[in-house]
Computed example of a mutant assay.
Amino acid sequence: METILQIDENFIETHTNFIELVSVLKDAFKNNKTIVPLRHHHDFPNPSVNADSTLLLMPAWNPSEDAGVKLVTVSPKNGDFNLPSINGTYLYLDAIKGTIKAILEAKSLTAKRTAAASALASSFLSKKNANSLLMIGTGALSSNLIKAHASVRPINEVFIWGRSLEKTQKVCNLLKNEAFNIAPINTIEEKISDVDIISSATLSEVPLVLGKHLKKGQHIDLVGAYKTNMREADDETIIKSSVFVDTFQGGLKESGDIVQPLQNGSIQQQDIQADLFDLCSGNHLGRNHHEEITVFKSVGHALEDLVAANYYYKKFTNV
């Protein structure tokens, strides 16, 4: 039996080039050969912490080329145990034989591919000269999102807000040697109107990005709020923006940022401009003009996981 490779968090962290990862993601969305069933999404009660947990199963395959499935649990109260809220494993498969080629640590893989997808969207939707970024949230995604956005735009100034000043400062310390300046802020309001890109990655159920603060030409990257009762942006933000999603399959169904405005009539489904398949294939060109406000809502897609698994597998085996 073939040896199953173990690709751990350290390898993923030290072998990520966001320019490369964005490029392979772009090719996959453009070619659109990956078969992706709708993800399995199961909420289950967790009475010990008085909050539901979630099990996600995300398969994808390119016939006779590659295949895989990600198993993820999301437990919002894990901060009480000093653990990340998201944990998971990726099984990378031989698409012909059905055997397991590698097991990848999925938390880092997910963070990298999610950040790369946001950067890919930004390459179409943010202004080409965008040089300032507000990061809302201090979880595992925040540092990756900052670096990914900086790989596609000339970011030289970053501000970060979080509910914990200690965690905010930790992210700043982690990125202190990057090519941009980074600083913590005490309130979102003090910088939200000044930056070119706003990226938010939280589990908030209350909107943090308020439309009344937005200015012309901004790009808003919404990465958190993975359930329909969660919101990172209010209705005004959605109404006054050109809205894009990673995929129509998941984007219109899974996040409160899109589902709630659709349900209350603030927007209609036809108001959603395009997804990453449309953008990468050239069916939609993205930003129309300099003053347009754009929103990208990401809920994740198994294509991204498979592309990332293949990317790290090739690096690990030097293929």
Rank of each mutant, 00 (worst) to 15 (best):
E232D: 14
L134V: 06
D235W: 08
G224H: 05
A201R: 08
I155A: 03
S164G: 08
L203W: 11
S199D: 07
S204P: 09
P184A: 11
S108Q: 07
I146K: 04
M230K: 11
A201Q: 03
D235R: 13
D196H: 12
K147T: 03
L165N: 10
L120Y: 11
S123A: 10
R163K: 14
I182T: 13
K216L: 11
I160R: 03
T168R: 15
A106I: 11
I192A: 05
T110F: 01
S122W: 01
N173P: 03
L125Q: 02
S126P: 10
N229M: 14
S241A: 12
A106M: 07
I185V: 12
D246R: 01
R153M: 10
R231Q: 15
N131C: 06
K191C: 12
S123P: 09
L174M: 06
S242F: 14
S164E: 08
T110H: 02
A115L: 08
A150I: 02
A106Y: 00
K212L: 06
F180A: 02
K240G: 06
I188T: 09
K128Q: 09
H149M: 09
T114G: 05
V223G: 14
D196G: 05
D221G: 13
L134F: 04
H219S: 15
N131G: 09
A111P: 00
K147F: 01
K216M: 09
A150T: 01
I160G: 07
K191R: 12
T168K: 06
K127Q: 08
M135E: 03
A140S: 15
